[in-house]
Every structure is written in structure tokens, then in C-alpha cells.
Simulated scan of single mutants.
Amino acid sequence: MNDEVFRQTVHFLMGVLGAAILITVQPRTALIFLGVVLFIGFAVQDILTRGYRIPALVVLVDEAERRGKVPMKGGIAYAISALLCYTAFGPFYTAIGLVTLGVLDSVSTLVGIRVGKHTLYRKKSVEGTLSGIILTFAILAFFIPPWTALFVAVVAGVVEAFSPIDDNLIIPLATCIVLALCCFTV
């Protein structure tokens, strides 16, 4: 499995598993979970940036992170965004935000790498962005009304393609804001 496929598989699983955990555990447990994830992310980043080389940890981070990037930056952004969304919008909106992030980013990246021929913005392709939006819509439509799922998928796709802010940080928040603006209630 090449590095990007592994990285996007981790990304997808983190979105789906994070969502499942947040909607199945008690609120206090969810907040503790997010705090622990954030703490571990910062601790691992600190260990690696100080030059310590823990073999199993180095292999995992090397496979899950892009070369030349700050180690654990994406995971930390994910945990911060999930924590903010959870405290501001609650577990269901946050779960939808994490699923949106996991599906949209993974699909758009992998499809964009494989078949993307038309550049949309920077390294984002039209093919990747559209496929991410379509699959995200299809999955979200199982959990929220179809028109809301479509709106969320399109807004998240545009945010993912054009935002200068880390997608792990901004997609869950954008999703929660769209859900709130649509007056979607659980």
C-alpha cells in the first residue's frame, strides 16, 4: 500500500471511528476521550520534534504523515476541531462533521491523484472534488435529510478545495455550521 493510500485510509477511519465513539459514549466520556487524543497528539509531536526516535511510533507517523510536514499536525487539528464542534454543537453534529471530513477528504484526494486531470485550485482537481462531494452526499443521506446532506457535501467540498486552513480543522466546523443554519434537529 503506498503512503497516500495508507494515509487516506487512516483519515477515513479516524473520521468514521471518531464519529462512532462520540455518539455512543456519555458526554463526559466523549470530552475526556477528545482531551486524551489531543494530549497524546501534542505529546507525540513533542517527542518527535525533539528528535527522539521510538521505532513503532516513527513507523506509524512516517506512514500516516506527508513528508516534510509537521508531525501529528493533522491529528491535532482533528482533535481540536472535534472538541470545539462537540462543545458548541453536540455529538450528532460533530459525528456528521467527522464523517464528512473522513469521506470527503479521503475520496477527493485518492480520486484526484488517480484520475484528476483538471486543476481546480492548487493541487485540487475537479474530478477529486466532485467525487468527494458525491460520495459524501450518498453516505450522509443515510443519516440526515437528502437536501441537507447535499448542502453539507457541497459546502464541505468547496471548503476542502479552496480553504487555506487545514481541512482537518475547518471541515467539521463548516459542516456543523451548515447543519445549524439548516435548522436540522436531532
Rank of each mutant, 00 (worst) to 15 (best):
E127R: 14
C85Y: 02
Y52H: 12
V44I: 14
T9E: 01
H118A: 07
P27N: 08
T109N: 12
Y93K: 12
S108P: 01
I113S: 09
V126I: 15
T185V: 13
V36H: 14
A174W: 04
A56V: 02
A79W: 01
T100V: 05
A161H: 06
I32F: 11
V70G: 00
S108A: 12
L84Q: 10
D3F: 02
L173Y: 11
L120P: 01
L173E: 04
L179C: 04
F137N: 02
P146C: 06
I32K: 06
D46K: 15
P172Q: 11
V178I: 13
T29R: 13
E127Q: 15
I80P: 02
L84N: 06
L181Q: 04
T100I: 08
G102N: 11
V37Q: 05
P146M: 11
L120F: 12
A82V: 01
A19H: 07
F39W: 14
A161S: 14
V152R: 01
G128K: 10
V5Q: 09
K123H: 15
P145Q: 13
G18A: 07
S108Y: 14
P55A: 08
V59W: 00
H11N: 09
C182Q: 13
R7I: 03
P55C: 10
C176Q: 07
V152N: 04
V5D: 07
L22F: 06
K123P: 03
I171D: 03
A180P: 03
V111F: 08
L104D: 00
M14F: 11
C85H: 03
L34M: 08
C176H: 11
Y78E: 01
T94K: 05
V16N: 08
T136L: 09
K124F: 02
R67T: 09
L101R: 09
Y121L: 06
E127P: 12
F39D: 06
T94E: 04
I165P: 04
V154K: 13
Y52Q: 14
V115Y: 15
R66M: 07
E65P: 00
T29E: 07
L98S: 05
V25T: 10
G97E: 09
S131P: 02
S125F: 02
P27E: 10
M1T: 02
A79F: 02
R66P: 00
